[in-house]
């Protein structure tokens, strides 16, 4: 029997874990390298998942791969990749070297830094929070409270923060924040039935199956109000409540609103190290700084460098179920590549 081929996976989020588990079952040796002390990626921080409010822990429990051919390395951030004699060498800061016959990138997402959008007041005004902050509060089983310690009577949820915005250099749509906004509006309304919730959107991009049903539920059962207009700026009142300026574009009138809290649906960006990973090989980033596919339609999981593949949201923002699909299709591409090389 020939020696088992070795595949290195960079990133131990759900994409990396699922691809790793498929590939070991196919008979490969797999090493997953994760920069944090824990695998699971962003899912570790979320409270419940759209569109069915299932728990991230359930997803994670199903995909924790256990296989003698699978090695997990924690606390290691891969900084560069080199191709040498048909194999790949990986390096971290401490000169860890790892060889692999094929490489799978699953570096995932990073969340837009909301303080860059200064006019929205994140980091300046104490009652402005982000969608990630809300997930953490919710996950900890806490009630949403203002900084003064009261349950908010009115919360405004702001769409497209750091997405679709030339001013921050992100022209693209982050795709999952609209539905996250609907999910969180419902969560707030369940948590604080007395609280009025407003979503300020420009387009509601509820593309997935069941997403529109959730929108309907938000309106019908929870009286969430959707206002078509993008937030222009926020200012703080003396009592630390907030004033919003937007246009109600369906009325064609400027609108001022008072709110006790503002929740910013921050956009999703590619992981920061990706740029370094593109040095010394043919990997490329696309115009949004995600990994560029060899072909948008047919080879979404193949990179511009032969032998390097991509899985999950390092290709573009995606939901959990799409990420898992992407991981499985990436595993097929890796397998195809290694079997063809064999012949």
């Amino acid at each position: 029997m020939t020696k088992k081929k070795h595949i290195a996976i960079i990133g131990g989020g759900i994409a990396g874990l699922e691809a790793g588990s498929v590939l070991t079952r196919q008979g490969y040796k797999v090493t997953i390298i994760e920069k944090e002390n824990k695998t699971g990626g962003l899912l570790n921080h979320w409270s419940s998942l759209f569109p069915d409010f299932s728990l991230p822990g359930e997803v994670l429990a199903r995909i924790q791969p256990e296989n003698p051919d699978l090695t997990l390395i924690h606390n290691t951030c891969i900084e560069s990749i080199k191709k040498e004699n048909g194999r790949f060498e990986l390096f971290d800061k401490r000169h860890l070297k790892l060889y692999a016959d094929a490489l799978l990138l699953a570096t995932g997402l990073s969340v837009f830094d909301a303080s860059l959008k200064e006019e929205y007041g994140y980091g300046l005004f104490i009652n402005v929070i982000t969608s990630s902050d809300f997930e953490r509060i919710h996950k900890a089983g806490q009630k949403l409270l203002t900084a003064q310690g009261d349950p908010p009577k009115r919360v405004a949820i702001i769409h497209c923060v750091g997405s679709r915005d030339a001013k921050v250099g992100n022209g693209y749509c982050s795709k999952v924040c609209c539905i996250t906004g609907v999910k969180q509006a419902i969560a707030i309304s369940r948590m604080l039935p007395e609280c009025e919730v407003f979503n300020f959107y420009m387009d509601l991009r509820l593309y997935g199956s069941k997403y529109d049903a959730l929108y309907l539920e938000a309106q019908k059962r929870h009286q969430i109000q959707f206002i078509r207009g993008r937030l222009s700026e926020v200012s703080e009142n003396q009592d630390q409540s907030l004033q919003l300026k937007a246009e109600d574009t369906l009325q064609g009138r400027p609108l001022r609103m008072q709110a006790d809290m503002i929740l910013l649906l921050t956009g999703l960006e590619a992981a920061r190290q990706n740029e370094n990973l593109c040095k010394n090989n043919h990997l490329e980033l696309d115009e949004n700084r995600f990994f560029k596919s060899e072909n948008m339609q047919y080879h979404r999981n193949c990179s511009r460098q032969e032998g390097i593949f991509m899985a999950g949201s390092c290709i573009c923002p995606m939901s959990v179920n799409e990420t898992l699909d992407s991981a499985r299709s990436a595993a097929i591409e890796v397998d195809n590549y290694l079997t063809q090389k064999e012949r």
């Binding site: 207009g229 222009s232 700026e233 937007a246 574009t249 064609g252």
Partner: peptide, 10 residues
């Protein structure tokens, strides 16, 4: 893209 930010700030 009809977002209304200009009107809101004007």
């Amino acid at each position: 893209m009809n977002c209304g930010i200009c009107t809101a700030v004007c």
